[in-house]
Amino acid sequence: MDKVVIGVWPSPGFINSVAYVEARSDGARVVIGAGTSINNGLVIIADKKTVEIGKDCLIGTNVYISDSDFHGLELDNRRSGNYLCDSVTISNNVFIGNDVRILKGVTIGEGAVIANSAVVTKDVEPGSVYAGVPAKFIKRLEVNV
Rank of each mutant, 00 (worst) to 15 (best):
M1W: 10
K3D: 08
V5W: 01
I6M: 15
G7S: 04
V8I: 14
P10A: 01
P10H: 05
P12V: 11
G13M: 08
F14P: 03
N16K: 07
S17H: 00
A19C: 10
E22V: 13
A23D: 09
R29P: 02
V31R: 14
G35K: 07
S37P: 00
S37F: 00
N39I: 00
T50Q: 12
I53K: 13
K55S: 14
C57E: 02
L58F: 08
G60I: 01
G60V: 01
Y64K: 09
S66M: 05
D67F: 01
F70M: 09
L73F: 14
L75E: 12
N77M: 02
N77S: 05
R78P: 03
R78M: 11
S80F: 08
N82M: 11
Y83I: 03
N93G: 01
V94F: 09
F95E: 06
F95Y: 11
I96K: 05
V100N: 09
K104R: 15
K104N: 08
K104Y: 06
K104T: 09
V106N: 04
T107C: 10
I108K: 04
I108G: 04
G109R: 04
E110R: 06
E110S: 06
A112H: 03
V113C: 12
I114A: 04
V120C: 10
T121V: 14
D123F: 01
V124K: 03
G127M: 14
S128V: 10
Y130M: 08
Y130R: 05
P134T: 04
K139H: 07
R140F: 00
V143D: 10
N144M: 10
N144P: 00
